[in-house]
Design a protein around this nucleic acid. Sequence first.
DNA 1: GCCGTTTTCGGCCCGACTGTTTTCAGTCG
Length: 591
Amino acid sequence: MNQNMTNLEIAELLRSVAAAFELKNADKNRFRIIAYERAADAVEHESSELKDLWDEGKLKDVPGIGESIAMHLDEIFRTGKSKHLKDVMSGLPKAMFKLMEVPGIGAKTSFKLVKELNISDKNPFNELKKAIKEGKVNNIEGFGEKSASDILQSIEEQKNKSKRILLPYAQRIADEILEWINKDHSVVRAEPLGSLRRKASTIGDIDIAVASKKALQVIEHFCNYPKRVRVLERGERTASIILPSSIQVDLMVQSPESFGSLLQHFTGSKHHNIALREYSIKKGMSLSEYGIKQKGKLLKFKDEEGFYKKLGMEYIPPELREDSGEIEAALQSDIPKLVEIKDIKGDLQIHSDFDIETSHDLGESSMEEIVQKANDLGYEYIALTEHNPSQSGHNKKQFTDILKRKKEKIDKINYSISKDKNKRIQYVFNSLEIDILTDGKLPFDDEVLDILDFALVSIHSSFRKPKDEMTKRVLGAFDHKKVKIFAHPTARLLNERESIELDWPRIFDFCKSNKKYLEIDADPKRLDLPDFLVKEAVDSGVKLSMGTDAHHKNGMDNMIWGISVARRGWTKSSDIINTLSVKEIKKVLLG
DNA sequence: GCCGTTTTCGGCCCGACTGTTTTCAGTCG
């Protein structure tokens, strides 16, 4: 424990406390254990840092954190430790909490192993592995050959487990498995569910639901998937396999007349389902993957619409099912009509191969290829947004010359587009993605900027600066008249680089007052703004811009992933400037 | 320990699978 614990560390602490309670008062108060686990979940789920919420006196606004836990956290943030939580965990070996990271090892198993084998805190995983190999584990009461070797395998898999899977890659893996599953003739329908169906930016496990009257046959077929490394479990209705890189695939089978309930159950999220079930209990209904039980009778649902309707709710799109207000909205028929890919009329961040003498990466496709691709996608407009020419080795005249050359080329393209009545595409914006320098300035002055139609700004260096300094830096650059869009605003790279720290409410206010726009960068390794900030931005009345950040014409197909983020952020088409017609967007960007 | 669209007290989501047992505890999603 320390004064500056992150949400992840706090969640881990609360989970350890839950485990400690589980061991210490076995049957006394199991709901306290659940309360701590739910608090841990809530902290992990929370988009703001708890320390910041504590600063603002809002700790108890986090659902799952009440009087008592808030008090302990307050003590931690003030003094760096909590006497009570420390007492709860006292006498339990640290190694125990570490071993619980292994799938299949819970509190009780972990405690028993550490105690029986005298495992030290130093390297519990290696010590446990060694004990298993020496045959010491299968002699412990409650363990056997199989459980010992399962644990060994779990530790190994945990070690080589890849990071969370990027959305499009998870989709490809799921598509391949679906192709295999559909070879079984008893399969009526098969769908990828879980976080993949909710279109989360990264995916942990891959979940698949199948409608079939022959569950056992489907499960047999699934477990024979050629790319499997091993079968993790295999029951009458569900099965799990492990793929290379320790990717887990879970399968659930249900008869076609109940497939709607299975879709609903297996799509999740866990938080959404729990909230939904708690609400339903009050209405005298009990929900499960089999249907809705009411007065002892089981009602079955072929589709999800009927399921939600029975609960007195509007249909909730999968992307919204995170227990972040969607149930309340659905009860009041207040679910927004979410933006769709067909609403998008243009792509506002694309890099061509025009040699702009940048120190960043150039695109790989020519302007002409990109314009053709945009036309194929049905777009009315695009923006060509190469990185700015490098600062070193260019003086003002050279900047001007390069940008004038680019403008001439785009002018020609626009002229030829205007002559071709068969083309959907009507305008190419002459733009640029400009670095925000460390001091908040842009690399060149207004005269050079004037050559452009408009500009994007973004951060590509000095990512780790304090929130206030970073916010001033961004607003300094964003303030220029020609600058309309802040591109990939958090600068995060999924699995690789954390988001920068910004005062978001201040950024949102600035955008609203000054007609500036925040980008959703649709590049699958960015997906930036992240969904929860999209929701906050939209709630604050900020308008967004969509860009694929394509560095090759094929990258323009990535718009769909940006749309997924927008939808998860409760975005309507009117919240996004790229849904405007070419005539309207010129007023917005050229003004 | 948390929480309130019947409640400030009395509830707390629901079910599957596995190994080690011989009816169930532990774990997971």
